[in-house]
């Protein structure tokens, strides 16, 4: 009897601590709406979706890598590189699919190199991807000769600018990525093995899991999604820039961590990453429309992220 009561109390508490980041998100949304009612207009909500899309897609790739116990510093550079390739191939009358495939393959290639370096070469993920981050940025500059690439076809530019039933196309891509990734992680054998690798790599190996292949594949997924982001990024800004997407990997990592993905691997839920992505986008958007100066924005953004995670972590640690 006593046990049952305790259990109920625990469930309510556990529920709150598990969804705390969601609560924080709602509080921030309400706060911003009170401060600036135009925050909640449909037009601005569309903005938020657009602004969240590319980081969201990157964050989902990053989530695979982090859950499997890795880390990827190279996604920002990969976005720029694949974006440049897409821009070069998206000029004139080339069929659009050419640009898309090139961007995806470029991203996938970088991802596989990362994965092989980490899983086979036994390099620490941080070092390996720091290397590719630098090298791939160089590739982007090389391919574009350091200049922005212009002259994208109208059809290509239209992708990011268009929308379906009021939902911006970018967000449609994000939703598709979210659905596929959540499904893969929760429902497939592969997804469960990603968690097992991150939870205890040695135990996973002893249990007969091909840990090398799993680890390579997570980096490949991150690379592939970075390639997709590059393709969309170029469409959104209508030019290919070799210097674009600087430090996007940090935003992606932030979205994951804020969303409850453990940096030590093995733990993390897709919906958490969705909330994490929305949270940092909403903060940036909200501060912009409040007209807060850039210097303050940096301070506020940093503090909110640390506080959100701190409260979340503290809330959880009470459980033990």
């Amino acid at each position: 009897m006593k046990q049952d009561e305790l259990k109920k109390g625990k469930d309510a508490k556990a529920l709150l601590s598990e969804y705390f980041i969601f609560v924080i998100f709602i509080v921030i949304v309400i706060g911003l709406t009170i401060l600036k009612p135009s925050f909640i207009t449909p037009k601005n909500l569309v903005n938020i979706l657009k602004q969240a899309s590319i980081n969201g897609i990157l964050a989902f790739g990053m989530m695979f890598v982090i859950i499997s116990g890795g880390f990827d510093m190279s996604v920002g550079s990969t976005v720029a590189f694949s974006g440049i390739l897409a821009a070069l191939l998206g000029q004139g009358n080339n069929p659009l699919v050419l640009a898309l495939v090139a961007a995806l393959l470029a991203g996938l290639g970088v991802g596989i190199v990362n994965g092989v370096g980490v899983a086979v070469g036994d390099l620490p993920p941080f070092i390996m991807t720091l290397g590719t981050m630098t090298a791939v940025r160089g590739l982007a500059l090389l391919v574009s000769n350091g200049k922005p690439v212009i002259g994208m076809s109208e059809q290509y530019k239209a992708i990011a600018a268009s929308s379906i039933a009021g939902i911006p196309m970018l967000a449609v891509f994000l939703v598709i990525v979210i659905l596929i990734c959540s499904f893969v992680l929760a429902k497939t054998v592969y997804g469960r093995r990603v968690y097992a690798c991150g939870g205890n790599l040695q135990a996973a190996r002893v249990a007969g899991i091909n840990t090398t292949a799993i680890r390579i594949s997570t980096f490949a997924i991150a690379g592939l999604l970075a390639g997709l982001s590059g393709f969309l990024m170029t469409s959104r800004v209508t030019i290919g820039q070799p210097t674009a997407a600087e430090s996007y990997e940090m935003d992606a990592i932030t979205a994951c961590v804020v969303g409850g993905v453990s940096m030590t691997g093995g733990v993390g839920k897709p919906w958490g990453v969705v909330v994490g992505t929305l949270l940092i986008t909403v903060i940036a958007n909200g501060l912009d429309i409040l007209g807060v100066s850039s210097h303050w924005q940096k301070i506020v953004k940093g503090l909110i992220i640390v506080l959100a995670v701190l409260i979340d972590v503290k809330g959880k640690s009470k459980k033990d």
Binding site: Q51, V237, T243, A244, D288, G291, S293, S294, H295
Partner: peptide, 26 residues
């Protein structure tokens, strides 16, 4: 000047996001 100058790091995408947000409020 209705808002503080925004630091967009010379970056197209950053500028695009900021201006989108502004236009829904100002």
């Amino acid at each position: 000047q209705v808002v503080e100058p925004a630091d967009c790091q010379w970056d197209t995408a950053a500028a695009q996001g900021t201006v989108e947000s502004w236009l829904s409020a100002y």
